[in-house]
Simulated scan of single mutants.
Amino acid sequence: MSNQVALVTGSSRGVGRAIALALAEKGYDIVINYARSKTKALEVASEVEALGRKALVVKANVGDVEKIKAMFIQIEETFGRLDVFVNNAASGVLRPAMELEESHWDWTMNINSKALLFCAQEAAKLMEKVGGGKIVSISSLGSIRYLDNYTTVGVSKAALEALTRYLAVELAPKNIVVNAISGGAIDTDALTHFPNREELLADAREKTPAGRMVEIEDIVKAVLFLVSDDAFMIRGQTIIVDGGRSLLV
């Protein structure tokens, strides 16, 4: 039988890259998805291959359903299966609600919310072939709390978490386990786009009960748990990994 296969969207850098490499270390062949950073995606592929695993690099804007379908055709042609889908790719326009335009809303919702639905539809077809699978999405605390300039992303992540619950129930008969992870502020490239980046980092450093900020590895460990058989009875949940920051009002 072929090695198990994992798709991680937005895996050319940051959290997605770390998840992809961790899954490769666990023995998965990896589908690396990117939208712009081809050079970085190829670097991740080299790292995956250095671990003795196969890597498929696919350029696809996951906000476009036709691009999603084309990506899954490549996955099926290359591997003939899919065991894990990590819905990590994200984007968004960071502006106050009163300054948002329709294009900002559509762009963010398509990549952060619509992508999960239509990727899950395609992933489920391949997972059925091997008797089941695991789907994990990456959310954020803006889904349940107000963050400055975060309207489009926060609302899109709230939709993602709701969709996680619906998919968990509807895909359960196919032996597909669906969950999400909501992380606290992490000092990655993505955070550089926030106008209040330094304020967010200072808050995380000073007010996280665990005594330190959330790190990429914390999210990776949570993903590895949710795609393991140990998490079989966890369904449709959004696991908050924030060191307790959201507990403080």
Rank of each mutant, 00 (worst) to 15 (best):
R36M: 10
S37E: 14
K38S: 14
T39P: 02
T39E: 13
T39C: 02
K40H: 11
L42D: 15
E43L: 11
V44L: 03
A45I: 02
S46G: 13
S46P: 00
E47D: 11
V48Y: 03
V48D: 02
V48S: 01
A50F: 07
L51W: 06
G52C: 11
R53N: 09
R53E: 07
V57P: 02
V58M: 13
N61T: 08
G63C: 13
D64W: 04
V65I: 09
V65E: 11
K67A: 15
K67I: 08
I68F: 09
K69S: 13
A70F: 14
A70H: 13
M71Y: 09
M71C: 15
F72G: 06
I73N: 08
I75H: 05
E77L: 04
L82Q: 05
L82A: 03
F85M: 05
N87Q: 07
N88D: 06
A89R: 00
A90V: 07
S91Y: 04
S91M: 04
S91I: 02
G92E: 02
L94T: 03
A97P: 01
M98G: 12
M98V: 11
E99I: 06
L100Q: 02
E101G: 11
S103L: 12
S103T: 12
D106C: 03
W107F: 14
W107Q: 12
T108D: 12
N112T: 03
S113T: 07
S113Y: 01
S113V: 00
K114R: 11
A115Q: 13
L117N: 05
F118G: 05
F118C: 09
A120F: 00
